[in-house]
Design a protein around this nucleic acid. Sequence first.
DNA 1: ATGATTCATAACTAAATCGATATATGTTGT
DNA 2: ACAACATATATCGATTTAGTTATGAATCAT
Lengths: 308, 308
Amino acid sequence: MPLTNSRIKYRHLLCFLETAKQQSVGKAAQNLSISQPAVSKALRELEDELGVKLFEPLGRGIRLSGYGEVFQRYAGASISSLKQGVDLIAQARSAGGFKIRIGALPTVLAKVLPNAIHSFKQHDNDTIIEIITGENTVLMSQLQLGDLDLVVGRLTLPNRMLGLSFEHLYTEEIGLFVRDGHPLLTETSGKSFVLESISKFTILMPWKDAVIRPSVDQFLTVNGMGKFSDVIETVSTSFCKSFVKKTNAVWIISRGVASDEVDAGSIFELPIDTSTTTGPVGLTIRVGAPLTLPAQLLMRHIREASIN
Amino acid sequence: MPLTNSRIKYRHLLCFLETAKQQSVGKAAQNLSISQPAVSKALRELEDELGVKLFEPLGRGIRLSGYGEVFQRYAGASISSLKQGVDLIAQARSAGGFKIRIGALPTVLAKVLPNAIHSFKQHDNDTIIEIITGENTVLMSQLQLGDLDLVVGRLTLPNRMLGLSFEHLYTEEIGLFVRDGHPLLTETSGKSFVLESISKFTILMPWKDAVIRPSVDQFLTVNGMGKFSDVIETVSTSFCKSFVKKTNAVWIISRGVASDEVDAGSIFELPIDTSTTTGPVGLTIRVGAPLTLPAQLLMRHIREASIN
DNA sequence: ATGATTCATAACTAAATCGATATATGTTGT
DNA sequence: ACAACATATATCGATTTAGTTATGAATCAT
């Protein structure tokens, strides 16, 4: 039988784990509904295979050894992975498919997420992906509650991050965008552009609760701008895109949100230094509860999409 | 045989994974050095057990089904966990034990890390823990290179975070610390304390390259302080502690660094608002390469120690 | 159509596995 | 010292398993 070079089987792991949990061979045997010697034998076989003692005598019972404690976690991971897989299949069989729920902030909706999902779909065409958009804090609480598998977007404030883990993907700045042929574009071909000149136009900017709003405010302050008279505060990307293209409005927003239109040549960025608005974009997930593997796969594609 | 409620065995997974990899039953059989029907049978048994088709006919060969693609990852995870465990045991058996290398920044060295390691040791007394201290950026590159398993401390700047993942634990502020009976303490019992009055004394602060130095500078600027004449820049905690206790020096440092001495009543914090210096403290790990499980366990203890 | 290729199924067997019973070894409490 | 408790070892039989060969069914290339 040349297949299994290691003759360890699930049965060994199950016996081991139950014994470790009960700290007792006898009780483990009871719970497994087999005889005590059967458990003893399985443990012995496992120890022989590993070449280490997993348990050591303690009083008239036993106790996990150092090796045992470590191996316990791997054994647990192994059977729980299998169990997860089996459960997921069973669940999907009744529910009709797999599902990933992903929270997305506007920054990534235009380019990186579409790209990521496109390449993901080429590997896995059966998983249903649900994209939930919304305000940062809402998405984060949904994530913490387990309603979402992951959230992609700007880093959230530290005090909202308990129980969550953030993985940096790239940094991003804010930009000022206008339609083709906008007066400010022609007027400023010589690079000498002052921020004040935008106040003549309608300003589109994210509303107060948006993650990037503080950056926008700071940027305006640094460049000596106070309040604008003609402002529309909205986070609706489609509204802004359409509005900017039709009017002389100036749209202040994360570059990622407008990047597809810029690439397409339908809107343009004003030449002004926005380096003070640099901020991290990344993936946020729960700690503790492990991700489903389809979700992990999607994460990999998001990473790839974000570096291209 | 009441033990294995699911009669799936590693052999099934191995056959399945190899077949999935090769996209061919025959080639899988060759690689596994068994006959083709043996593989077919194993696959059939697995499919029966799961109640789904893992492969579907494609031309005169086969192809992974949607279910198969998902199950593949779980099966892979399961056997790789076991393999990891076995490998780790084997390695530890020759190397004489398990080892975790953890990078620690001063903030956590005084309290949370000692506490975490203490409780960790009660569960696992055989794992060797190596604590590496050093400058933030150095630790981060060591982490990226795989020299360290994890780093605990203040959040690093985004551009240093590629390939790393940060998990927030708590936020922390900077504090100003002096010895017992220091003039500034008695003098300011009425709470009206102005930062300027510290300039009479020697100032101890972290040097330029420390993570928190920008926060310190910002804090001083906000409170209207320029340069000090009498400054010692060092990150040596033991030097500062001892120096502060013996002289009238004022020590500007993360609260965590001094917290043990404050708890012990041997040094005291000056009453001044430092809320602008708030910053996140957490765990940083590599993404991709999974942590060894002892390291994961230690992480859990660090989390617990950080919330107490 | 036909032969080649590839997977599925059937029938069969040697071997190992699994678990049971009986017993030995060792520890603890009285 | 002895009863109790807990685990380890030994022997053994029924079952399952993992593999084989032989053969059938489907698809593709020519």
